[in-house]
Design a protein around this nucleic acid. Structure first.
Length: 207
DNA sequence: CAGTAGATCGCCT
DNA sequence: GGCGATCTACTGC
């Protein structure tokens, strides 16, 4: 069992230890959902131009400035939510974006949630492949922002033994924060089929 | 498999 | 007013 101190450490130190861990959401009257995390990205608002917190505290990013062990959940691209685990002490705005994982409990519910307004069949490994997919699998929405990982509804368990991992460039990030030489802050379990497609700087090059 | 367009809206400049 | 820590479907090879 971990406690809040687990998250009260440098985000780059926490990142590899989250891999292989299982995040679970238990809501009254709802089938529990568990996802084994296979890919995360670190963000540090103090030094990282790609972080939502880089330009200071706003209403949206306030959770990242709060105490560790909470979920920072935000709305993006007009249709998706993304989940972060807040790390380090209050005032140090850091977070781990949950990019992908393997559903280990609640398959039926997740499949139903992920199949809404979808025309093509969904493979098992795609149930929580991608940040927006992870949030949707958990049924996370605006009300999830600020949720306490030690409040009962959400729980996180680290793997029995440390898991092998590799690092690389972040995905979907542009500008100064995209440089993999400076911010190789994407952590993933090598070879895991649920890790999202590696397409750094996906946005079309300008011409 | 690679490349791309469209959807859709809150946030911040 | 522009763009974003994205996803899906579709095209062409």
């Amino acid at each position: 069992m971990i406690d809040r101190a687990f998250f009260d450490r440098p985000v780059l130190e926490v990142a590899p230890e989250v891999l292989g861990g299982v995040l679970t959401r238990r809501q009254p009257g709802v089938e529990p959902v568990s996802i084994r995390i296979t890919e995360v990205e670190a963000y540090d608002g103090r030094i990282d131009p790609a972080s939502h917190a880089y330009r200071g505290r706003t209403r949206r990013n306030a959770t990242m400035f709060g105490p560790p062990g909470h979920l920072y959940c935000y709305f993006i691209y007009g249709m998706h939510h993304s989940l972060n685990m807040v790390c380090e002490a209050a005032g140090a705005p850091t977070g781990l974006l949950l990019r992908a994982g393997e559903v280990t409990a609640g398959h039926e519910l997740v499949r139903a949630r992920r199949s809404v307004r979808r025309r093509t069949p969904l493979r098992d490994r795609d149930l929580a492949r991608g940040p927006g997919c992870v949030a949707q699998a958990f049924g996370a929405g605006p009300e999830t922002d600020g949720a306490d990982l030690f409040g009962g509804e959400w729980t996180f368990a680290t793997p029995p033994a440390p898991v092998e991992h590799v690092t690389g460039p972040r995905v979907g990030v542009s500008g100064d924060g995209a440089d993999p030489a400076v911010f190789p802050w994407r952590f993933r379990i090598p070879g895991d089929p649920t890790v999202s497609a590696f397409v750094p700087g996906r946005r079309k090059a300008r011409r």
